[in-house]
Design a protein around this nucleic acid. Structure first.
Lengths: 220, 220
DNA sequence: CAGAAAATGTACGGAACTGTTAATTTCGCT
DNA sequence: AGCGAAATTAACAGTTCCGTACATTTTCTG
């Protein structure tokens, strides 16, 4: 899938170059992320992405092959970003209950602050994960989340604060679902129930409720 | 929005007619529902819908104006369907805890059995609810859900089995989120965690976990 | 500095799509 | 029976949009 190699073999004066493949690639990715998140895969326009870029449409096809290739790259980059930040949480130092609350609240806050990520995942699910299926990196990236979760859960069981016998995947799914839905379904939900889910107070309250819900499921 | 009147004024031999506006309308709606759910709004093709219909493309424009009008009609019909079935649940006769469990399990099961509905809602959320915003019916349809939920919750508080002070919307949101996510994010989630969320046993287990989670949040 | 490879700009082909025009058939009513 | 309205058909106009062909410039290698 990667057409371009890392340009680490040139010898000198790397700063003076007029051409800058990596920057061009990144520029395209940034613009494409916004466009795909806003309009979905079919709704996104390659011409529109090209227009908002500092480069031309020709470059999109040069680096990413076609529209689908571009979307795959966008998805990979988005997942890489969230996992990188997520792995920075230091949960091992906290008591299990606190650690779980922290993880739940982080998940909620991150997704709320990064609606583009949520929207990209929605779009990819509409397409039945067909693009993500091509990426080998994805799975490796996400193993760590379960690892952290498992460790925290088992500490909690040993301490007697969590009930035993639960499935790690279930716990993760519950956290993700509650955090995700708050962003993904905000439009229809707010519309139908005339309830502004995006306001500062609503978010604080909901984050609290989500954490409570997760902990309630775990608590002995 | 309704262009066609109910054709109840003809006198005899209604079965022998060659023209049948209501059937044509319904035929279009059924086909369009599948197409929009499968491919999203932008991905859906009017020509494709027309081809799978017993009628022609011109009829789509005749009855629904344009592609957006067709999508609005599809959404309205989908919501009407789910709410109709939902209102058939008789929760007032059950003790509060049982009633809540029943509601949570129904929500889970319905959404699982009707992925097209879930997908249409996803699509509409990608479009920020712009289509649903035109429909006045939608809000009225959903008031009843909150009504039922409120009544059940208050009975539970009076009985001392639910803790007081909770927000009805929060409860509904939690139920919806857990049920919805299980369908909406199945593709990416299953892919990333190599966990088949669609299998019979996984569904039974998860439905149980979802009910537990909701009740855990409510329990005193 | 030459020659190769990488990167980029321009312009356009042609398929895919939405929506329309105009003409025809069927229906409801008196 | 016959008229006006509703329903339906067929063909197509006008865009939009993905992807490419071709040419050119820039950078790298030896």
């Amino acid at each position: 899938m990667s057409i371009v190699k890392s340009p680490a073999r040139r010898r000198r004066a790397p700063e003076i170059r007029r051409q800058n493949p990596e920057a061009v690639r990144q520029d395209i990715l940034t613009v494409a992320t916004a466009e795909f998140a806003e309009n979905g895969f079919s709704g996104a326009r390659v011409d529109e992405i090209a227009a908002r870029t500092r480069t031309s449409k020709r470059m999109i096809y040069y680096y990413f092959g076609d529209k689908e290739g571009l979307f795959v790259a966008v998805l990979e980059a988005a997942y890489a970003r969230i996992r990188e930040i997520e792995s920075g949480l230091d949960l091992a130092g906290l008591p299990p209950m606190e650690a779980m609350r922290r993880l739940a609240e982080f998940t909620f806050t991150y997704q709320n602050d990064n609606p583009d990520f949520v929207r990209l995942v929605m779009v990819e699910n509409i397409h039945r994960g067909s693009h993500l299926a091509r990426s080998a990196k994805i799975q490796a990236l996400n193993v760590s989340v379960l690892q952290t979760l498992r460790e925290t859960y088992e500490r909690g069981v040993a301490d007697g604060v969590f009930r035993p016998g639960l499935d790690i995947i279930d716990i993760h799914m519950t956290m993700s679902a509650l955090a995700f839905f708050n962003v993904s379904n905000r439009s229809t939900f707010s519309l139908i129930f005339k309830h502004n889910m995006g306001s500062r107070t609503a978010l604080t309250r909901r984050r609290q409720a989500v954490a409570e819900t997760v902990l309630g499921y775990l608590r002995r």
